[in-house]
Each structure stands twice: as C-alpha cells, then as structure tokens.
Write a protein that binds this DNA or RNA. Structure first.
Lengths: 154, 154
DNA sequence: ATGTAAGTTGAAGTCAACTTGATGTCAAGG
DNA sequence: CCTTGACATCAAGTTGACTTCAACTTACAT
C-alpha cells in the first residue's frame, strides 16, 4: 500500500469546493474522517471526495447535516461503498424532491388565483394559509413543504 | 370615527396565527405599526391583519423579512392599500416561484440520471455541482435557486 | 538553515427569525 | 379595592452551518 495519495486539507478543500474550516467542522460533526501526519496535520484519502460530494448533493436536496450523518452511517462498515450504496442512499431523495416541487407548484397556482383579486384574506387566501383550525377551516392544504420553510417553527 | 375596533396584541396574534412575541418583533423590524392605549399597550387597526397575511404569504414564497419590509415600503403613502396594490406586490413572486420550481425540477432530473450510476462524481454529478470553474467546467447549471438554499453562502 | 505558506486548536462570532425569561405595569370583572 | 390575566420592555438564548480569531506549529522549497 502506498501511504501517499493522501491529501492535505487545502487540496481537499480546493477540489471539493468547500472551505477548510468547513472540512474541520464536518469532521467534528462526524461526517468525514482523516488520518494524521506525523506532526498532527490532517491527511485525507481520495474517497473523502466522494463522501463530500454526497454531503453537498444531500444539502442541495434539503437535508440537514444531522440527516446526512445518519445517512452516511448506514453505509457498509468494512468495505468501500459501491456505486449501488450511494445510489440506494440518494434514491429516497426523489420523493422528497417531488414533495418540494408539488408544494411550490401549489403555491404558485394559489398565487395565480390570488393575483387577480389581491385579497390575501387570512381566512381564504391560499398564499397565507395559517394552518390552525380557525383560519384554515376549509382547505387543509399546506403550500410549502416543511423542508423548504425558511421559518423553522410555526 | 370610532376609536374602537382596535385590537390588543393577543387578539391579533390569535387571529393571524402569529405569536405575540413575533408581532412585537415585526414592529421592531418596521413591518407593522400599532397605536398605543393610554397605558402604553399596543392597539392594532384591523388593516394589520391583511398586512400580516402579506408577510406570511411572502415568507411562504421565500422572501426574507428584509425583502418583505422593502416590499411593504413600496405601498402608497397616504391611502389604504387597494387590492390592486397587494396584487402588484405579489405579482413578482410568480417569477421567483417559477425559478424555484425549475431549480428543484432540474435537481430531481439530475437525481434520476445519477441514481442509476451512483457516481456522485465531483466533476460530473448534477447533484453535487460545486459552482467553481475547475469542478463545474462542463455544465454551468445551478440546481438549487439561491432562495431555496439552506446553506446561505457558497 | 530558514522563511513562509499552510496547518493546528478552542473559543467565540455570525445571521435570521424569533422565543424565553426577568421584572414590572395595565385593564377589567366582581 | 383587589385580583388576575394580559401586556410592557430589555437582554439574552436558540438553531444550523459555518466562519473568524488568536496563538502557535508543520512542511516544504530554497
């Protein structure tokens, strides 16, 4: 085995398009691991690049780092993950994306019907649906899927 | 004129489905205003409900409070906003939603093609597109519109 | 041998949109 | 009058995903 082809943090950061500080942060969060050089500097295996690609892709789909860590934890223990392993993980994203798209589409269509009247009624307008019983009595629809809500609670 | 039909904060909060603390926060941010009772308590005009509906709708579309404040600031000074005023404001959301939907759809379609191979290549995979020159050489596409990115920077 | 770029740690800061807590005041019913 | 619940302010805390800073240490090219 060649102990070489291990990359320092700067190179990984550059190749993955992620800041070194983020890489250290990911390590602290248990998303990636690294060997250490004699002097204590991080040395990354090439495989970390794929792992980072997965992290980024998952973020794009809207997963939190915690969800991503859980997903990565489900990878096989001993062996190197295969293409099929990665594919299995990302397969579940499809439904999530479908939800997100459906939510936005519903919101857009609600918008189309609201623009005409300019109502924005608390009780009736599809755009401003408060999901409490009193106000959203008629339609139970939620227009933005939770994964896309920038306002966490509510 | 009737000085009545002014509501205390609790009633507005209940009718709008927004916490009293959030209403105070919105006031501090310049999103809404309120009269004051003799003793210094907030008294809201009915019109605040529509304003709050607008705020909520705009949040659903993905606007930040700052953007919402700017939008509200463009309402006519003296007179009560008409339906047309609200409609004009929300019309611009359409394009934003279209962008968001397009972004997610592209991401989903990229996912479809990636699931087969499980590649997640930093350079080639549509899902994990780093938008720096070196890595995203071929396709310049960004898959998540900025308004939907949970990770602000990057 | 040495200069310097790149790396290390731990703590603290950032941003958005609020919430929570502490402490004190107001309003309305009985 | 008095109690009780709603309201007031102001400061600080929360969450997620990082970044920034200070103070050193390593690694590599010359």
């Amino acid at each position: 085995m060649r102990p070489t082809d291990l990359m320092p943090i700067g190179e990984v950061a550059h190749r993955a398009g992620i800041a070194p500080s983020a890489l250290r942060f990911y390590e602290a969060q248990g998303l990636v691991t690294a060997e250490r050089s004699g002097g204590g500097q991080r040395r990354y295996a090439r495989s970390v690049l794929r792992r980072l690609a997965f992290v980024r892709a998952a973020q794009n789909v809207g997963l939190s780092l915690e969800e991503i860590r859980d997903a990565l934890a489900s990878l096989p223990d001993g062996r190197t993950p295969t293409a099929a392993d990665w594919a299995r993980l990302s397969r579940t994203w499809r439904a999530r994306l479908d939800d997100q798209i459906a939510g936005l589409t519903a919101l857009r269509d609600g918008l189309a019907s609201c623009i005409g009247c300019g109502c924005l009624s608390l009780r009736r307008c599809a755009l401003s649906n408060p999901d409490d019983g009193a106000a959203a009595a008629g339609s139970g629809a939620r227009y933005l899927p939770p994964s896309l809500r920038r306002v966490p609670g509510r």
